[in-house]
């Protein structure tokens, strides 16, 4: 352990001040589930670390039909909220009980694939992130926040402080597929949201996890769905488009070939589940 100073600020203002005084070499952690394994292994060797556990960003509040989620809200808190069921489901399928008690919703946006499953659901919900630093506050669409593998739009002097989820427009489905049922890294995660006017799809989101450098939107698949009535042909075409536009990788869990095949399958299954669900509700 190379840490010589560990700061535990008690407010956001203190945290922002510490960051601007110590600069980008100050490692910021929240739940510790991403950083501590690297530190324990001696891969990350920080000298100064700031923990966000006591800054008071761990509240979930309803807001304009949606949610405002503090960045250090634990995954367990997200699981227990009842406002957005897809987020509860995404949290439920993430990691294990103990890890959910520690890991945070904000931290999940920094978790490299094949983790970071909550980010996939947030992406399908058009979530935006709030970034705050000594130069002020700005908001950014989540799709603009994750810029590459392990990289984000966060500036050196900024902190991620919150996630805004607009009122959920349309129906949603969330499917996580791993090699096992509980506490599993993803082969692929699929989150879909479809808004319809009668039978016709007016807006669609297809978000994919573990098949790219970060959570991705399958925009070609979305384009296929808009204007369709979710008929089997449209679903197959969207699934095919998603499989083509994803950027899967090889790792110890699955090969790129297998991941692409599973994108095709689980985008289809997610859309079929959504159709069935709507049919049941409509009766």
């Amino acid at each position: 352990m190379t840490v010589v100073e560990y700061f535990l600020p008690r407010s956001l203002a203190q945290a922002v001040d510490l960051l601007s005084r110590h600069g980008p070499d100050l490692l910021v952690i929240a739940g510790g589930t991403v950083a501590m394994p690297l530190i324990n292994d001696g891969i990350s060797l920080p000298r100064q670390v700031m923990g966000l556990r006591f800054v008071g960003l761990d509240e979930i509040e309803p807001s304009d039909g949606g949610l405002r989620i503090g960045a250090t809200t634990t995954l367990t808190s997200l699981l227990r909220q009842r406002h957005v069921p897809m987020l509860a489901e995404a949290a439920r399928r993430t990691a294990s009980w103990s890890i959910r008690n520690m890991g945070t919703v904000g931290g999940n946006l920094f978790t490299p694939p094949p983790g970071g499953d909550v980010a996939v659901a947030l992406l399908a919900l058009d979530a935006e992130v709030t970034l705050e630093g000594s130069r002020g506050r700005r908001t950014l669409a989540l799709s603009e926040f994750q810029t590459g593998f392990m990289t984000t739009a966060l500036e050196p002097q900024e902190l991620l402080t919150g996630i805004g989820v607009p009122a959920v427009a349309g129906e949603t489905t969330y499917v996580k597929f791993g090699r096992k049922e509980a506490n599993t890294p993803s082969v692929v995660t699929v989150a879909v949201r479809v808004a319809r006017d009668g039978e016709v799809v007016t807006d669609a989101r297809v978000a994919l996890g573990a098949v790219g450098p970060h959570a991705l939107r399958a925009r070609k698949a979305e384009a296929v769905l808009v204007g369709s009535s979710l008929e089997p042909g449209a679903i197959d075409e969207a699934a095919e488009a998603a499989a083509e536009e994803c950027e899967p990788f090889d790792d110890g869990i699955a090969s790129a070939w297998y991941r692409r095949a599973m994108v095709r399958l689980f985008v289809r299954r997610a859309l079929e589940e959504l159709v069935q669900h709507v049919a049941l509700e409509g009766r």
Binding site: L8, G32, T33, G51, I99, N101, M102
Partner: peptide, 12 residues
Amino acid sequence: EPMMSCLLPVED
């Protein structure tokens, strides 16, 4: 609440 003590700085 259960937590992994290997990931928890004791100051927390």
